[in-house]
Structures are given as structure tokens and as C-alpha cells.
Design a protein around this nucleic acid. Structure first.
Lengths: 369, 369
DNA sequence: GTGAAAGCGCTAACAG
DNA sequence: CTGTTAGCGCTTTCAC
């Protein structure tokens, strides 16, 4: 029973290069269940049962031990493709983001891929550039590959045609037993793990008002992204509740656009003493623009962000912002997908993750002149 | 020939929910090659040939047209799992990074996933946290999944045990026809697309020397990462060539560590007039630390980075840095993998991508007192 | 408790 | 040029 196991399958010549070393893991999963069964002296089906349903007793204890020993000796690793073909579904996740290079999404991706790999799942990352067609094409590919779950990290797009097209695809995913999770607000009624966009925006606005600011300008994301809508809604509510007039401009979540929106605000509504940019990424651009125009932060204008991307506390000035726990959302998304897959998902459908106000140096009380 | 195609396979009850709508794409790839063949009135193998080898004429033109029409009518999409099982390899890429949340890697990932998807490939992202074991476990999973290629975006680790373990796995990948590409310096002799780390470090150092600086401090990455070694080497060469004494500290590419290394440098070798931090990410930390210690940039000390992560030109002060074209490297990596897969890869094995000196506001000529 | 057999969807000999 | 056959590696009836 020592040395190389017998193998009479169609051996490819190149296979000889890496000689099978029994017991050494990571040799590339070269021996199949057939090999294991043969070495253990049982049929393939028994081997399958022994290795798979380790909980239930479908197989005699001694047989199971023999199979397990054989598997270990051969360094057996099941072939996920064969399994997936049979099960009509792969043990693979996918995460859809608007832009992986945006630190906000990168952080979610980091947490999600890490959580998934902990459960032995690989994660496909799709960066859609916020383009509906690209996103739909990606989803088609994901369906072809029968991924177990798709996590949509970006806010939904408010576009009827896109939503209809997406609905068909989601039905297809569900049809083969796949799961879908939203990590940002969407019209579709999917299981959702989301940051408290509206509450966070309200919280920050109330904080600024509490500092004595009355003329507060606001920069949000694109009108067709649900996340932007929620943040704008929260800000607006707080402003109106305080009897203040909201002033808003939009960017597309990139620093350049944060700068451009700030420029427009400076022209359209000069004299604001606080600027709330509902995205840290855009806030960087806003700070640059204010500097360019000779305005000091926070002396001349207080600036607040949203998101609190880790590592950004090193900027100058350190930004007051709303901290969303991006890592928690990524992990929760994976857990949520898992529980859908094994049928243990429970209400509530939408789980809102609390945010936290982080006060740093970019905001200060309004000095009454 | 209208309406629902006949289908006598074992229909699952849930399948009725999304009725097959012939001609409508994206229905989830529900009809198989068997369905197409039946509709076209040919055998499965003929259908396969007609759809696959569209270039060569293995099939009569009329037959092909009939098959293509049937495929289109059914919205047929080949099942990559079945194909992969047969071909012993999937049409999927993987990219291994030290940390997806590091903008440096995020940018490479963005470019690579985008290039891959252009060719119809999905991309699995693995974030190893610079941990050899995590990385090896990931590679095992990738091998199980028979990914077509693995792109290693992070510098290799200088650890014999890790290198040996990796060598076995790479052999396994090659054994099934998979490709491997390095996007950073490594001891392993893989096809490589890499930024000019050494030349870039030399270039920046010469620039600083040209500004009149004589006491130049240097921060590089971890000693066991090959990228760090290259940058340190370039810096050292330029310093010695100018008859100057190099002073170096190490960080681990995170801002916190950039700050810590700077602090150590300030203690150990106070009085330097220029600080070259061989990573933009760490430079952010360095800037924060200098500020904390009351040193102005660039008045008191010039600071230079390495990498030029897009979007970071908005920081204060805008950083003088070495621009690596991260996007180009990501794309080149995918192209390189492709050419290995179809056997058209050509020398040179290592392709070095040129860098560019980007002068901004964080450096200035030394003022002779 | 175990084995034989069928089949997931596709491709590639091998005949004809 | 096209059909028949034989798997890729695994899981799951269905018998015994």
C-alpha cells in the first residue's frame, strides 16, 4: 500500500512530471474519487457517501475510516467542477461593485472575499463602472458559471429597463438555487445588509446644525443611484426639520466630481459655512477645490464626509465623517448568502447597520461674527 | 417551430417558474446543447462543432446556419462547467494580491478584471494579507477550480519553504495547461510584467540629489517582499554613486507603518532634508507624522512617494512621486496570460514597464543656509 | 450498508 | 460532412 497508487485512467504524458506524493496536500487534486475508491476497496458511490455526509450514518464506521485514510493518503481533493455540474451550482461567490478602485468598495470586497474564503468559497469580483449594460453582461456570465451567490455592493440604478432585465436574471439565479444579497439600497426586494445612509446623513446634518451652522451646502452622488437618494433624503429631512433651506449638487463619487460640485456650489450658493459631502472619496476633491479657492478648512468652512474609509484618517485635515462599518457589511453579506443557501435565512429582510459620527478636525463651531 | 421547445429531460418543478422564452437572451442558459441539436435536427456533436469551430469548415454551411439559428432561438449559452470539466480547465482568471484595499493593488485589479471580462473571462480575486499560508491555501483552491491563469500582483516573499511549496503548486497549474504571470518582482522565473522599481527609485533619488539634498532618508517595504528590495537597491545605488550615505527604515506598505518608520528615522538620523518613501500609501502616513512633529512639507523637508495611485493628486500637499502605470500592468498581465494559454508567448520573459517622475508640491530645492 | 447505473452538459476520437 | 460512443469526476436513485 506504499508508493504510487495504481492508476489506469488515460494518463497524459505530462502528468509524470509531478509525481504523486501520497499524503502531501496541494499536489493539485490529481487523484479522483475513483482512485480513492479503488485504494479503499469500495465503490465510487460508497466513497462519495463516506466523504460527503460525514454527519449522517449512511456508511459503516469502518468503511468510512478506510475511505478517509485512502483519501488522505492520495491527497484527494474533490473536483468542484464535477460537483458543480452535477449540483447545477458552484461553491463560488461573486461581488458586483461600481468600481473596485474606489476605497469604499475595495474595503467591502476585502471583507467579503476574506469571509468567503474562510468557508472555502472563491469570490469573483465584477467592477461594472456603474454601467447597466456592463453589469448585466457580468451577471449573465455569473449565471453561466452558476455562482452560488451574487452580492451587489453598489446602490441600485433607477432605470426601469435595467431593473426589468435584472429581474429576469435574478429569477434565473434563484431557479438554480443561487442566492442574491444587496449591500446597498435597492428597489428590488432582496435580502439586504445596508449601512444607515439616511440616518447617517441626518446625524451629520444635525451635528453641523448643532455647531451653529445655518448655511450648509450638500454634495451627493448621482441621481440614479439609490444610495445617493437615501443620503440626500436624510440630509434634507434634518435641514427642513430645523427650518433650513437645503442646497445640493451632485457628483459621481470620484474626487474630480467632488471638486466640480464644490465649484458649482461656490458659484451658486456662496457664503455657506459648512459643506457636507456625502462620500469621503468626493470629499477629498472638495477639500482640494476649497484650498484652490483660498478657503481654509475648518476656519472658513467646515467640511464633513461620509463613509470613513480606513486609512484616510491620515489626511490633512483629518476629516469629520460618518463611519460605516464596511467590513461588517461585507462579512454580513457573505453570512446572509450562506443562510439563504442552506435555507435558514430569517426576517427582517433588510438589516440596517448602524453608523457612527466621527468628529475630527475638519469641522468646528460656527464663529458668530 | 414556435413556442417552447420540446424538453424531455428530468424537469424540476421549480423550472416552470421562468418559462423559457426563445430568443430572449439572459434567461439563464437554461437550454442545453442537446436542446439546440434537437431543434436543429442534428446530433449533439454536430451542434457542438458548428457552434465552436466557427472558423474551420468541419460542418456544412447550411447545417451550421441551422444550428446557429436554433441556438439563437433558444438563447443558448454554453455551460462553462461542463466545458471546463471536459477540457480540464476553466475560462476563469485569478489575481492574487497582498491587500485589495490597498489602492495600489485595487488599481491593478480594476484593470485586470476589466481586461479579462472583455475576453469573456471572470476573475477571482484573492487577498492574501501577505500571509504565505493564506496565499498557498488560496492557490490550492484555484487549482481545484482549474483556473486558466493566476496573476500574482504582489512581490514574491523571500522564504524558502514558501517558495518550495509554491513551486509544487505552479507545476500542478502548468500540468493542466494553466498559466502563471507575475506582476511584481519574484525569484521564480515566471513570465513577468513589472514596473521599473529599481530604475524608478534611482530616478527619484537622483532628482532629489539634483535639488541639492544631501541628507536623504528612505522608507521601504518589508525585507521579505521582493518589490521593497528592488526599490531599496535603486535608491542605494544612486546614493552611493553620489558619494552619499543611505539611511533606511522599513514599513509594511500601510500608512501607519509609514508614520512609524518616519518617527524612527527622525530619532535615528535627525536633520534629513528629504524623505523618500517608496510607496504612496506609506507616504500618507509619513506626511501625517511630519506634521505631528511640527515639520512643514516641503519647507522643512521634501517628501517623495512611489506609485502614483490615481486620485491621490488631490491630497495636501500634492505628492511628488514615481508614476507606475498600474492599469497598463494589469492589462498586460491578462494579455500575457492569454498568450501563454494559446501558446504564442514570446521572450523576453520579463517585461519592465517604464515609470515617470511626477513632480508636484511636496519637494523643492534645498535652500542653502 | 453497499454497488451498479444513470446522467449533469459538453467535446473529441472514431467510424461511416 | 455527420452520427455514435465514450468519457471528464461527481452524486444520487434504485436495487440487493
Amino acid at each position: 500500500m506504499s508508493g504510487r497508487p495504481p492508476r489506469d485512467g488515460p494518463a497524459r504524458s505530462s502528468e509524470g512530471r509531478t509525481a504523486a506524493r501520497p499524503g502531501v496536500a496541494g499536489e493539485g487534486g490529481r487523484s479522483s474519487l475513483t482512485d480513492v475508491a479503488r485504494l479503499a476497496g469500495v465503490s465510487v458511490s460508497t466513497a462519495s457517501r463516506a466523504l460527503r455526509h460525514s454527519g449522517i450514518h449512511l456508511v459503516a464506521a469502518t468503511t468510512r475510516r478506510r475511505v478517509e485514510a485512502a483519501a488522505k493518503e492520495l491527497g484527494y481533493r474533490p473536483n468542484p467542477l464535477a460537483r458543480g455540474l452535477r449540483a447545477r451550482r458552484m461553491d463560488t461567490f461573486a461581488i458586483m461593485v461600481h468600481d473596485v478602485a474606489d476605497p469604499y468598495f475595495a474595503e467591502i470586497v476585502r471583507a467579503a472575499t476574506s469571509a468567503a474564503s474562510g468557508a472555502g468559497y472563491l469570490t469573483v469580483v465584477c467592477s461594472s463602472d456603474r454601467d447597466p449594460d456592463t453589469e448585466l453582461r457580468y451577471v449573465d456570465l455569473l449565471i453561466d458559471h452558476r455562482v452560488a451567490a451574487v452580492l451587489f455592493a453598489g446602490g441600485g440604478l433607477e432605470d426601469r429597463a435595467y431593473q426589468r432585465a435584472m429581474a429576469h436574471r435574478i429569477a434565473a439565479i434563484r431557479a438554480y438555487g443561487g442566492a442574491v444579497v444587496a449591500l446597498a439600497p435597492r428597489v428590488e426586494r432582496w435580502p439586504t445588509e445596508v449601512t444607515d445612509n439616511r440616518g447617517g446623513a441626518r446625524l451629520m446634518t444635525e451635528y453641523l446644525i448643532g455647531l451653529g451652522h445655518r448655511k450648509i451646502a450638500f454634495v451627493t452622488g448621482p441621481a440614479n443611484v439609490h444610495t445617493s437618494v437615501e443620503r440626500w433624503r436624510g440630509h434634507r429631512e434634518a435641514m427642513l426639520a430645523a427650518g433650513l433651506e437645503p442646497v445640493m449638487e451632485r457628483g459621481d463619487f470620484r474626487p474630480e466630481e467632488g471638486a466640480a460640485a464644490t465649484r458649482r456650489l461656490l458659484e451658486r450658493a456662496p457664503g455657506f459655512t459648512a459643506l457636507f459631502v456625502a462620500s469621503d472619496t468626493m470629499a477629498v476633491g472638495a477639500l482640494a477645490e476649497l484650498r484652490r479657492q483660498g478657503l481654509r478648512v475648518p476656519e472658513d468652512v467646515s467640511v464633513a464626509g461620509f463613509g470613513d474609509v480606513p486609512g484616510w484618517e491620515f489626511r490633512d485635515p483629518p476629516l469629520t465623517t460618518i463611519r460605516s462599518n464596511l467590513g461588517a457589511i461585507g462579512e454580513a453579506g457573505v453570512r446572509r448568502a450562506m443562510s439563504q443557501l442552506n435555507g435558514t435565512d430569517k426576517p427582517p429582510r433588510v438589516r440596517v447597520h448602524p453608523v457612527e459620527l466621527v468628529v475630527r478636525d475638519s469641522t468646528r463651531p460656527l464663529e458668530r461674527v
